[in-house]
Amino acid sequence: MRQSYIMPGFRPTLGFTLFYLGLVVLIPLSTLVFTSLQLNWAQYLAIITHDRVMASFRVSFVTALLASCVASVFGFIIAWVLVRYPFPGKRVLDALIDLPFALPTAVAGIVLATLYQPSGIIGKLLMDSFGVQVAYKPLGIVVALIFISLPFVVRTVEPVLQEFDSSMEEAASSLGASRLQVFVSIIFPNIFPALLTGFALAFARGVGEYGSVIFIAGNLPYVSEIVPLMIITKLEQYDIPGATAIALTMLVISFFLLLVINLLQHWVRKRSGQL
């Protein structure tokens, strides 16, 4: 039996979706797979498990994780302020949030490196008062990634917060819940799935980011080399299969992590009765 849908146009739209995904996503990605198929399993493992490559994976994923955690906390606060309180200049502030989207990432990297270098305005302050060097250390990568990933969190949490039905809050208050209780057991669980999405987007962006990081990282082998730099370095040596092997591995890990986050999100929604 053919399944029929109430909405017309299922076949053409699905056809278009598959065609578009194929053209824009799957064909380029499959080229990656085919190029790395030039390697046999042992060669592939040797490239991936090389100490220096492993170190770069560690740097990339740890810094992206830290940065997206920080961006999630502060992105949430910013979204909260933008949605909940009216204040003069709010629209300007709102527009400012999107700037990291629009700014070429290389520009962001150069600006951040200038500010956070040991003799820069912020860098000198941090150096003198805490003895912390940011630029040209792994910490610099985290700073760049926070900058890049902030709008992802704000822009995913903001609409959900806006749609949030305040009658639930009012009901809770009238039943005697404290402000903290309202936040912890009413607001946060409802926002959490959106926050997870924002976190996932920020993380995915952070893992793949090259332009801004390269100017602030210092790029020292085993210390502050990110995976995209390893890929570029391999390409510079005309080692294309090696570069694609690393790229493919990164793709698989990222896909797996995003899948886990999506499942987690699904589970949270289900538990809190949103599905």
């Binding site: 490196a113 200038t114 270098q117 040991p118 003799s119 820069g120 040209y136 390269i214 100017f215 210092g218 790029n219 020292l220 082998p221 730099l229 570029i232």
Partner: peptide, 21 residues
Amino acid sequence: NVPVLDSGARGATTTFLQRGI
């Protein structure tokens, strides 16, 4: 003794002259 490895010559010159490293 090398604190920063830039990817090209101009980048290194910038690090030395503009950033003062």
